[in-house]
Write a protein that binds this DNA or RNA. Structure first.
Lengths: 130, 130
DNA sequence: TGAATATATTCGACATTCCGAATATGATTA
DNA sequence: TAATCATATTCGGAATGTCGAATATATTCA
């Protein structure tokens, strides 16, 4: 492509990665520590494959990495600097400060959130919150 | 779309605007003051219509505004806060500080750069720089 | 080994963006 | 008014992104 664009190509590419609300939401969930896919799934109530696709984009961009633990894949942030960009943009678009990620352990079936951690999610008892 | 994304939609939209090297380059030119389209054209050596298309995107997003002066349209930044985001991203992608925009007046035929300002560009004498 | 589980990949339809070519618009000068 | 000038818009094809459905993979348990 045009040679003039060269210095801004990398920035533009990274902006493109951030230009999707699903990915921004996923990053906000990973922000305060690693989470497995099923946790993200439970939080966002979105299809697993859909989340996996976005996680792949983030991973290919070097923003997150994965660690396997038994059945589960735990994703974590490897480039926390992106949050400086994201927070600035978030403030710019009307939000004074980042939204804290509410870990609603009660409704999340993943082994990290659930008391009976380690059991297959399908065998865990979901505690109704009332 | 999904309700969960709502808080991040505006941020994602703005990221999308910034996710193009041509637009980042144009913004860097406008950074230190308004410029007419033909100045941008001369700096980037790109087709006029192409630049106009990107300027429209930036204008629709509320990042720049236009002022007419005779034949020329002068664009200027109306949302300088975006540079906080851009600079942060630029630093993140390997550049310690923003690239200063070199106004090479000698080669730019626009009325703002040229000594015989006010004449149609086509009638101006381009001073070779040697 | 085979079934169950969490997650990943592939495929395809659809939407959007990119960008060149051609043309239109609106201001200015003769 | 007609020609000229800077800039804008429209159109269309190619490339890319989105996202659902189906399927594949790797791990663990029985």
């Amino acid at each position: 492509m045009s040679n003039i664009f060269k210095p801004y190509q990398a920035s533009a590419d990274l902006f493109k990665i951030l230009a999707h609300p699903a990915r921004l939401t996923i990053l906000s969930i990973l922000r305060d520590g690693e989470q497995c896919v099923c946790h993200i799934e439970a939080m966002l109530k979105l299809r697993q494959a859909y989340i996996s696709q976005h996680l792949k984009v983030l991973k290919d961009a070097g923003i997150v990495s994965v660690r396997r633990d038994g059945w589960n894949m735990y994703y974590h942030i490897t480039c926390p600097e992106v949050f400086v960009v994201i927070d600035t943009m978030f403030a710019l678009s009307g939000h004074p400060e980042p939204i804290p990620h509410a870990h609603s352990n009660a409704n999340c079936p993943c082994p990290k959130c659930h008391p009976e951690a380690g059991l297959p999610v399908s065998r865990q008892v979901i505690h109704s919150s009332e």
